[in-house]
Simulated scan of single mutants.
Amino acid sequence: MSIMQVEVVSNQETIYSGEASFIVVPTVNGELGIYPRHEPIMSLVRPGSLRLTVPNVSQEVLVAVAGGVLEVNPHKITVLADVAIRSEEMDAERAEAAKKAAESSIKQAQDDESLAKAQAALAAAIAELKTLDYLRQQKR
């Protein structure tokens, strides 16, 4: 089995660093599936679920990402995420509350900076909710 090194980093911490045999990244052009020895590319990441198939691990490793940049090299994948949350740290009620708060903040934003912060918070909440939906579908 061929493997590649994967680094998923948020602006606060390293979320995942290790090997993977396959990764699915939500990009602005749709989901991108990547195997080892993929052609080099760069893409913008959109809010959604990043899914990793890790050797000798039965379940996918899931990370909610809310924007960022993807860099693909033949043996290394790097995702620099604006916000990234591990699946074990996700909470549906908290994410739904954060989404509602962000939507309210967008409506009340009075300058570009507060609007940008509210939009980033909304993207993070949407990414978390999408990942939780994916997890629920997988358990069926």
Rank of each mutant, 00 (worst) to 15 (best):
D82M: 06
A101D: 14
H38K: 02
N73C: 03
E88F: 11
A102N: 10
Q137A: 13
Y134T: 07
P74C: 00
A95S: 15
Q5Y: 05
S104K: 12
K100L: 13
L70N: 03
I126S: 02
I126M: 14
A64N: 03
S87C: 06
A66I: 03
Q12P: 01
I3L: 13
A101I: 05
A98K: 08
I23D: 00
S87P: 01
P40M: 10
S10T: 07
T27Y: 06
M42G: 01
S10Y: 09
N56K: 13
I15T: 12
N11Y: 08
D112Y: 06
D133K: 15
M4L: 09
S114D: 11
V54R: 04
M90A: 08
M42W: 01
Q119D: 02
V6S: 03
E96A: 14
L32M: 15
A120T: 11
V28P: 01
Q108D: 13
I85N: 04
V6C: 05
Y35S: 00
S114K: 10
A124Y: 05
V61E: 11
V6P: 02
I126T: 15
E60G: 00
I126Y: 05
A84D: 07
V72Y: 00
I23N: 00
P40Y: 02
V79D: 04
V9Q: 13
N56D: 15
A121N: 15
A101M: 10
L62A: 10
D111E: 09
Q108H: 10
H38L: 02
A64L: 05
A127H: 09
A109Q: 09
T27V: 10
M1A: 13
S114V: 06
Y35A: 01
L32A: 06
G18Y: 08
R136L: 15
V61Y: 10
A121P: 07
L50F: 06
L132W: 05
L122E: 11
I106E: 08
M4F: 01
H75F: 03
E128S: 11
V79A: 05
R94N: 12
M42V: 15
E89C: 02
M42R: 08
D82N: 13
V6D: 01
K139A: 14
S114N: 09
E89T: 04
P47T: 12
T131N: 11
